[in-house]
Design a protein around this nucleic acid. Structure first.
Length: 940
RNA sequence: GCGGGUGUGGUGAAAUUGGUAGACACGCCAGACUUAGGAUCUGGUGCUUCACGGCAUGUAGGUUCGAGUCCUAUCACCCGCACCA
């Protein structure tokens, strides 16, 4: 007999002898047994319908889990277990987003290899998760830092590198198809997304050198190399994505970020902008989430119009506008300071001013520009353009409020219709043309689209909305512009000057990039001695010269991929995690298909979700998978906030005064550890031992207690308000912990953690236990037939739990369990037929206690696969209803009537009722409203 | 500024989608059992009033026999985006 079995036997004996709810023994026992029986192993072959329930996999940080983290995992676990009971083959995997900055930062500080710290962190996360009793199929665990995994991240990157986006078909295709097109007809039909001015014929294409050809192809690839201004963060020694920069400083650490030109890998996600937008219609994400993504994509419709430059033949300024209807209201034009035309058009007399202004712009960091949005700056170039319709001369200015990266980097300014243009015109005293008559008051711009146009030549008298199309048609007819859709979204930077990430499977032969052959994958991350950046901001890999220099002409790429590389496709790998031939077998991804429910935080709204949606679409276009949206339904769990406990130290002393008396003293408010406070009452002994400085602390008490103050804020170590799930599980058990997290409120909502409230849930489980077992008598369940009353309680519960679980309304489900147990307790119901059904309902929420009692009742198979109780209306149907009787909308009394009673009989009896008579008070009854099964209202 | 969301007891929250507001818990109060209670059980607990009653879902209006729920305005807080032409 194994020692494990001996341990379990002993546990069984202990349980049998005392028959109290010994959650520690129960949970340990069943967790071990579930592992032993591989209870959570999932097969890719099953006659059952599939259900894929996924959590956003965690980055295993050194800090470990706090009670906020498992909220989403518990929700998805309940759902997964529920679906399994309902007859689905459920995939519910877990893995690790194991590459990332913090491990490397830690390595820089301590010299410990990120692989080592990551493995350690991961092990402690795993232990913490196991404590809570999740039904993850750990056989399918993935780690993004595992070469067996990132081999396929690199492989997908190569597919993106070898693809372009065919705009006319709106899908990705192989680069080889593009080459064929070029050879036959040049690029006339396929505008170059990387540089719209590149145009060539088939003949020209054939004349280009290989290097030139590869340069051009690079402008089409979905994964491409480009020189671009990137967000360079000197302090972190790396480049950051736009969404990693908040208000000009790094999201992590808050370090300054400046623009720097570097050769970088990018993903051409902008080509997918429209499909990413349209795809949102097919998935069930919250409105807020969809709106955030729409916002990020930022689609706008308008036109590009070229204005001829006055005095320079065949040269024009092309602007992008969403309001072509306002073309007669253009009073000036503004170019971005970085615009190519600036040096060409600046007149000699303005040259000095313009250069001074450009110096000024250059000197300002991104951060300053962000911070001083309201400040109006600009400079006149001395040049004029001509309004294409009436030839009016329009002065051309430059200003930093126009962004080089959006549209054409130039705008036509309409001060009467745009507030920024208006402010600019006022500031520089530029004449303002009013094209909307009374709708413009001269005090502020009016951005209306509904006014009638005036001062607008052939548009006069026309509604603005109508005029938009009229102008665009005319612009197109004149050949001076075209209809144009723009997106705010930029292509995403895909290079990091870092060590702890996926190496790029790319080599440079005399500077020209070539992909590695698939057979050479994975390109494993070499060992490094130090994690300091290479020169010129290159990553640490640049320092390993014999790895970098393959031969005299061949150099490896030294950047690594960003965190979102591995997380963009991990949900596919779970379908077939051990495959060494492909990233996942097509039959497996066809079977598991889309993630049915994806649970995670809102913080990944734009980054992770958009990237993984794009990768999925690209893999779909290339024929590797059969669906193009990864996540069918998304649940965003709310954050669990900290509830800090405050103590009040009398200033200049070591005396602490209780909350209720603090106003009588001059005090400093200090955080104390929430774990040494019971509700609001401070454990004074624990407080004295908490920190050496507290050893001799004195206390001013109220009613013999020290009462703490409460502040709700983010859970963080520094505020001493973090609660470790390990401690909660140790004290109350995993089942209590799981149910309490759900009981706190709706999953999507943010709420503070308060350990005190957990006792209610714990009491509930103990009360449940007592329905089955008595401390002295042991199991007290009998086989008597259930009464109608008991069946009513049961079926009400089945109905509610079933609906609530399906809808992720777990807080009300927990309430219903409590109501059910309360009612069965007062009915003294210890009947197997009722209690067994309750256990199955409860199993997704509190799996350990449910399994234990299930076996105590003599069942020999696991409750994980028990038949789910079926709701039957006949047990809950009432024959009579107690109606609230209201007079003029105010409830005055109650009367019971059979549900099939006819209205006339009800009216008669109601009117005869004494209490009703009193409230009618002799006034004439105008109307009697009777809503069957709801209420009765008398109008007097 | 734009977009999304939330406002209900001392606290976390319910409310079958227009039908008895505050379920279920925490906390608090009283009691029972107990050597003890931070165990367990029972009862009470929105505010106000001696009581009958009155007042209560951020605020002000409206629709309706009836509004936490629908409409209009307004305030507060939270989240996201933010010179995007």
């Amino acid at each position: 007999m194994s020692s494990l079995n001996r341990l379990m036997d002993r546990t069984d004996r202990l349980l049998f002898n005392y028959m109290e709810y010994n959650f520690r023994a129960i949970e340990k026992k069943w967790q071990a047994r579930w592992v032993e029986t591989k209870a959570y192993q999932v097969s890719n072959n099953s006659p059952k319908p599939k259900c894929y329930v996924l959590d956003m996999f965690p980055y295993p940080s050194g800090a470990g889990l706090h009670v906020g983290h498992p909220l989403g995992y518990i929700s998805s676990d309940i759902y997964a277990r529920y679906k399994r009971l309902k007859g689905f083959n459920v995939l519910h995997p877990m893995g690790w987003d194991a590459f990332g900055l913090p491990a490397e930062q830690y390595a820089l500080e301590t010299g410990q290899h990120p692989a080592v710290t990551t493995a350690n962190n991961l092990a402690s996360f795993r232990r913490q998760l196991d404590n809570i009793g999740f039904s993850f199929d750990w056989e399918r665990e993935v780690r993004t830092s595992d070469p067996g995994y990132y081999k396929w991240t690199q492989w997908i990157f190569l597919q993106l590198f070898d693809s372009w986006f065919n705009r006319s078909l709106q899908k990705a295709e192989r680069i080889s198809t593009l080459i064929t097109i070029f050879e036959q007809s040049g690029n006339a039909a396929h505008e170059c997304p990387g540089d719209r001015y590149i145009r060539f014929t088939a003949e020209e294409w054939k004349q280009f050198s290989e290097v030139r050809q590869r340069e051009i192809l690079m402008h089409y690839r979905l994964a491409y190399l480009a020189f671009a201004e990137v967000n360079w963060c000197a302090a972190l020694g790396t480049v950051l994505a736009n969404d990693e920069v908040i208000n000009g400083v790094s999201e992590r650490g808050g370090f300054p970020v400046v623009k720097k030109k570097m050769r970088q890998w990018f993903l051409r996600i902008t080509e997918y902008a429209n499909r990413l937008l349209e795809g949102l219609e097919t998935v069930s994400f919250s409105d807020a989430m969809k709106e955030m993504q729409r916002n990020w994509i930022g689609k706008s419709q308008g036109a590009e119009i070229t204005f001829q430059i006055d005095g320079i033949e065949n040269a024009g300024v092309t602007v992008y506008t969403t309001r072509p209807d306002t073309i007669f209201g253009v009073d000036f034009m503004v170019l971005a300071p970085e615009h190519d035309l600036v040096s060409l058009i600046t007149t000699p007399d303005k040259k000095e001013d313009v250069e001074k202004y450009l110096d000024y712009v250059q000197s300002r960091s991104e951060r300053e520009r962000m911070a001083e949005v309201k400040q109006i700056t600009g400079c006149f170039t001395g040049a004029y353009v001509l309004n294409p319709f009436n030839g009016q001369r329009i002065p051309v200015w430059i200003s930093e409020y126009v962004l080089a990266g959006y549209g054409t980097g130039a705008i036509m300014a309409v001060p009467c219709g745009d507030q920024r243009d208006f402010n600019f015109a006022k500031h520089f005293d530029i004449h303002i043309t009013n094209i909307i008559g009374d709708a413009f008051n001269g005090e502020e711009a009016n951005a209306t689209k509904d006014a009638t146009l005036q001062n607008s030549d052939f548009l006069n008298g026309m509604n603005m909305r109508e005029a938009m199309d009229v102008v665009i048609d005319k612009v197109e007819a004149l050949g001076i512009g075209k209809r144009q859709i723009n997106y705010k979204m930029r292509d995403s930077g895909f290079s990091r000057q870092r060590y702890w990430g996926e190496p790029f499977p790319i080599v440079y032969k005399d500077g020209t990039p070539y992909p590695l052959d698939e057979k050479e994958l994975p390109l494993t991350l070499p060992h490094v001695e130090n994690y300091k950046p290479g020169e010129e901001g290159e990553g640490p890999l640049a320092n390993i010269t014999d790895w970098v220099n393959v031969d005299a002409h061949t150099r490896r790429e030294t950047n690594t991929m960003p965190g979102y590389a591995g997380s963009s496709w991990y949900f596919l790998r779970y379908a077939d995690p051990k495959n060494t031939e492909v990233f996942a077998d097509r039959a497996a991804t066809d079977y598991w298909n889309q993630v049915d429910v994806y649970v995670g935080g809102t913080e990944h709204a734009v980054g992770h979700l958009l990237y993984s949606r794009m990768w999925t679409k690209a893999l779909y276009d290339l024929g590797y998978i059969g669906f193009q949206e990864p996540y069918k339904k998304l649940i965003n769990q709310g954050m669990i906030g900290g509830s800090s406990r405050m103590v009040y130290r009398v200033r200049g002393t070591n005396t602490y005064v209780s909350h209720g008396l603090k106003d009588q003293y001059e005090t400093d408010e200090l955080h104390t550890d929430v774990n040494i406070v019971d509700g609001l009452e401070l454990d004074i002994e624990a407080f004295k031992n908490w920190r050496p400085a507290n050893k001799d602390a004195e206390f001013i008490l109220e009613d013999g207690k020290y009462i703490c103050g409460v502040v709700l804020e983010k859970m963080s170590k520094g505020k001493y308000n973090t609660v470790n799930p390990d401690d909660v599980v140790e004290k109350f058990g995993a089942d209590t912990f799981r149910m309490y997290e759900m009981f706190l409120g709706p999953v999507e909502q943010s709420k503070p953690w308060d350990t005190k409230g957990i006792e209610g849930v714990h009491r509930f489980l103990k009360k449940l236990w007592r329905l089955f077992a008595d401390e002295q008598k042991g199991i007290i369940v009998n086989n008597d037939a259930a009464t109608p009353e008991e069946l009513k309680v049961l079926h009400k519960t089945i109905q509610k739990i079933d609906a609530d679980t399906e809808n992720f309304s777990y807080n009300t489900a927990v309430s219903q369990f409590m109501i059910c147990v309360n009612e069965l307790s007062s009915l003294k119901c210890n009947k197997r037929s009722v209690l067994e059904a309750v256990l199955v309902l409860l199993a997704p929420y509190a799996p350990h206690i449910a399994e234990e009692l299930w076996h105590q009742l003599g069942n020999t198979t696991s409750i994980l696969d028990a038949p789910y109780p079926v709701f039957d209306e006949k047990y809950t149907k009432e024959s009579a209803f107690t109606y609230p009787i209201a007079v003029n909308g105010k409830t005055r009394t109650e009367l019971s009537f059979p549900l099939d009673a006819d209205n006339a009989a009800i009216e008669k009896e109601v009117l005869e009722n004494e209490a009703v008579q009193k409230w009618i008070d002799g006034k004439p009854v105008k109307k009697i409203v009777i809503v069957k099964g709801r209420m009765i209202n008398l109008v007097v």
